[in-house]
Amino acid sequence: MKLDIRYRMHFRYSEPVRESQNEVRVRPRDDETQRVVSFRLTNEPPTKVLSAFDYWGTAVEQVGVRIAHTALELTAETSVDTLPRPAPPPDTPVEALADPDFRARHFEFLDPSPHVDWQTGDSVAARAAAATHSARSVPDLLAAVVAEVRGALRYESGATDIGVSLEELLAGGAGVCQDFAHLAIGMLRSVGVPARYVSGYLFAADETAAGDETAEMVSVQTHAWIEAAVPGAGWCAFDPTNGGTVGERHVVIGCARDYGDVPPVRGVFMGGATAEVEAEVVIGKRPAVEPAPSPGARSWPRAVTQGPPLGSRPQQHQQQQQ
């Protein structure tokens, strides 16, 4: 599927702030399931944007604004081609998960991580164990966990914030896609399945019902789902928020242990201001012809980054992810 994605992030401050520094992870990953045709990040006030790849292979754009400013606007424009995803995993028996080599290879995705710590209480592991005790194959086990998460949480915007623990999530019973993903990862890891967090874009008007999308253009937020490692089959993706499979409408930015490793924006600034944040993702199918320059293009000089800057890095990271 050929998609155009425009992600606009707008921070407005109650008084001038200075020395803002931010890490931005919004550029889709370039790999065998999706190809990035073009990417550019523009910022206002305009400054030099630095690009690099992090440990997990995700592209990081560093945006800093030193001078006093009352608003910061970031716009990421991507054209990406997504390919059909591989077939669902084979009927690997759950016993294969216990293989010491398999576990050693994936130990970073088996241990608790800052946002996925099921060991602070008992309920997450207990519910995961109860839900999966009859599963004989890994796909059954994965399906059981996704169902359990969907039974435990209802989708509710604003019910949670970052830093919510898995225990609090279960007690509250509501959250957004990120919370669905974290709870699913916690349950999977607690029963010995290596699981990781995926940050990305979803071409669907409603992220809780990705299956029956017919729109040509949607206005949404960024999305999060998960991947689990299946012995003999590699990483398999699931979307616990809508219970559906992950396909051509999902565009991956990056995969890591949890949200803390791939936040779309993370930064600090100096000043006691309060801020209003607006963010919007507009996704549409790309027309067959090359698009004309956007009419909104501004004339002042601005920093533009395009494509991966370091030739060898992505390759190395893909190797690590296999």
């Binding site: 520094q21 890490e23 630095l50 690099a52 990081v60 560093q62 800093g64």
Partner: peptide, 10 residues
């Protein structure tokens, strides 16, 4: 120093 890591990467 905010942004130091970005400078290091660069």
């Amino acid at each position: 120093v905010p942004g130091l890591l970005g400078a290091l990467r660069a």
